[in-house]
Amino acid sequence: MSNIIYYVSFIILGIGIYGVVSQKNLFKQLISLSIIDTAVNIFIVALGYVEWGEAPIYSAVTPVAKFVDPLPQALVLTAIVIGVGTLALGSVLLMHIDEKYGSLDPDEIKDTREVVE
């Protein structure tokens, strides 16, 4: 059962996908997307773990270079920033939708659209 971190990240990914498909409120869909991003980032960092490895920084306390894999950490650095950019854009789009239709619920949005037309 040493792969428990993989199972945890997959379960969080599943929760995120469940949230995107099942939630009606648009803001909850955005948060579920953010949960998916987080789960994938956890998974990628876990892929790089080497048993008994240390943080990949040369310093006075690591005379021998027994490090974990630094490349997934560099990938996750970029992925987190991209997730932040997407979240910021989604929030501003939601502000626009809320101003135009008055609510963030797709049912009420449909009603408003039919009234306009």
Binding site: L33, I36, G90, L93, L94, H96
Partner: peptide, 14 residues
């Protein structure tokens, strides 16, 4: 067209 863009954001993000 914020609603269409938001739908695209969810699909494209996944």
């Amino acid at each position: 067209n914020a609603l269409g863009a938001f739908k695209y954001l969810i699909f494209g993000g996944i």
